[in-house]
Design a binder for these strands. Structure first.
Lengths: 347, 347
DNA sequence: CTGTTAGCGCATTCAC
DNA sequence: GTGAATGCGCTAACAG
């Protein structure tokens, strides 16, 4: 059996409770006593048992992370950010990649509740307009509130639910990106996005784009990238092809894409159509994928603060767990325009 | 307070122990009794407490995942694979992105031990030849063996330590890729890799390449991609440039890269040098990055079975936790050649 | 400052 | 088949 506080206590000639206090740095314990106990503990190879501590104190020092794993590089970064601040406080992430069906997400959250996580970091499922369970989603999260389990949304949130969230400022980002293209002299700027993958983040990008176009009295050219027929086909590629073939694509000299992978697909469509990028058509992505730089030409993009997203979310969560009350916090993190060759000009 | 077995027991007019047996599907409990208890439990919103169960049974139903987060998309997939099989057995992953210094990895493993994880899924740190702590690494993992905490290496392993591991068959994969290039008629085939990021996986790729070249009585042209001077520079890009400028690059008609991102960098170097791919130089990556397909031309690559890696590792771990003894298992998973335009020909 | 006393929720002996 | 008793390792009152 592993050595316990009891062993340490016996060896040190003190009570277990004293050992407990010593190990938890309680100020009531004298320095020298603590040091003696700690040294004995270390000699004996004592290791605290978080399960016992958790049972007793009602805290597990774990956070359930319920996120999608599509666009997995993105989530890796977010989780790495969260993990790094949590680790400083002895917390860990209990991972739970959730497929985008709400039903699944629910049972997985239940499983994590059984593990007694102290809080949740959640990227709510995309709200597919074809089956809008949004109402049930709201109820679902409200249950968490009633059970007083803190949670914070990351990257996107659930409209109609006033909860903590941390997201990139997608609206401003889209505005900045669009304005950048307009400043370069473009008039017909299209926006390619996937309507079947809508969530609050995506919605705000679209709105940001539209708002700038309208303010400039230009016609917005939103272009829907449909679900590709065969599983592993390239969404952006098909969308780009169709846009170029359609009359809406006539005269378009710049394209902003809702995600980097969409942009990469569009880029291939442009290559295939022998359109020069950026000379004939300027292109810009959204996300900050590391591979964007490797494109030909290197892809300009809106870089999302992925690590910071996770870090902030973790901090809010820790606060809430410590009992911080107060109104929901809505943190919007700034993004950065990463200008490379594909959009045609330095900032 | 949350409802406990005690509450359920009182409500059902039975003892807690009966409830416990019922919930754990013990055959001693009669069907109807169990069903009655279960229904009451569900009515009362009973939720089992894994901390208590863990304290009692000595199992936490969690697995520590200690992996790097560079090449994060790769690890996302691996972890998603592991998670999916673990979830079926009520296990979860406790995440721990470890930077590649061994020292760090050690303290993080210690923290996870305190959380009483039932096993570890580990991607051992790269063995930087400049500071070969390999000996201490071995000891470090042996400690786990002595403590009888099961662990399995994923993707790479520690030479000199005969432990369970699951990896892609990098040696064969590199051989297949190299042979593919030779079959296309190439004689001077270079291999670009990063010596400062060596690990067993990388080493086997290099050896696979070399073995085929030697068998074909061709001169291997290994080319080292050095650590780029500025942090965020492109390793493969610089390496590609240097290779083209060097006399070793003379007459090279095909390049195999050790990773996809290296290949992407090389691709840019080729573009910059106005070399046509694949007409003048054929190119092939390694990894199966999702964005490889978006390259121009689409990048041929060796696709690694990322999800399967995680799935197998999880299964082995579960077996070991269940007490499976027996010699270390070394699982080598097959890879797939994904032929696209950059290498010049369909298979 | 340190020891005493009591559980946290559950699983596992044993009886019956 | 089911109930009673016991303790996993730890923390938190409350004494002293």
């Amino acid at each position: 059996m592993a050595t316990t506080m009891k062993d340490v206590a016996r060896q040190a000639g003190v009570d277990v409770s004293t050992v407990s206090l010593a190990i938890n740095n309680d100020p009531r314990i004298r320095r020298e006593t603590r040091e003696r106990i700690l040294s004995i503990a270390s000699d004996l190879g004592y290791r605290k048992n978080h399960l016992a501590r958790g049972l007793r104190s009602g805290k597990s020092f774990t956070i359930g992370a319920v996120v999608g794993y599509t666009s997995s590089a993105f989530w890796s970064e977010v989780l790495a950010g969260a993990q790094s601040v949590l680790a400083e406080h002895d917390y860990h992430l209990l991972l739970d990649y959730a497929p985008s069906e709400l039903r699944q997400e629910e049972t997985q959250i239940e499983a994590l509740k059984q593990k007694r996580v102290d809080g949740f970091l959640i990227a709510p499922s995309d709200d597919d307009p074809e089956s809008p369970d949004n109402k049930s989603a709201v109820e679902h999260y409200r249950a968490l509130e009633e059970e007083k389990i803190p949670f914070v949304f990351v990257d996107r949130f659930v409209p109609g639910l006033d909860a903590d969230y941390v997201a990139a400022d997608n609206f401003s980002a889209a505005r900045t990106a669009t304005r950048h293209l307009l400043r370069l002299g473009h008039k017909r700027v299209a926006y390619v996005y996937a309507p079947h993958r809508m969530n609050t983040a995506q919605r705000e990008r679209l709105q940001g784009y539209q708002s700038v176009m309208k303010e400039a009295r230009l016609e917005p050219i939103p272009w829907e990238a449909l679900r590709p027929r065969n599983e592993r086909s390239l969404e952006g590629l098909e969308a780009g092809r169709e846009l170029l073939a359609d009359k809406a694509g006539k005269g378009v000299t710049a394209i902003l894409a809702a995600t980097d992978s969409t942009a990469m697909g569009v880029l291939r469509a442009l290559h295939d159509a022998e359109k020069k990028v950026p000379e004939e058509i300027a292109l810009m992505g959204f996300g900050g994928a590391s591979t964007a730089e490797y494109m030909h030409p290197p892809l300009s993009t809106v870089t999302l603060p992925m690590r910071a997203l996770g870090e902030h979310a973790a901090r809010i969560l820790l606060d809430r767990i410590e009992g911080a009350d107060g109104p929901p916090r809505h943190v919007l993190l700034p993004t950065q325009l990463t200008i490379r060759a594909s959009c045609g000009a330095a900032r």
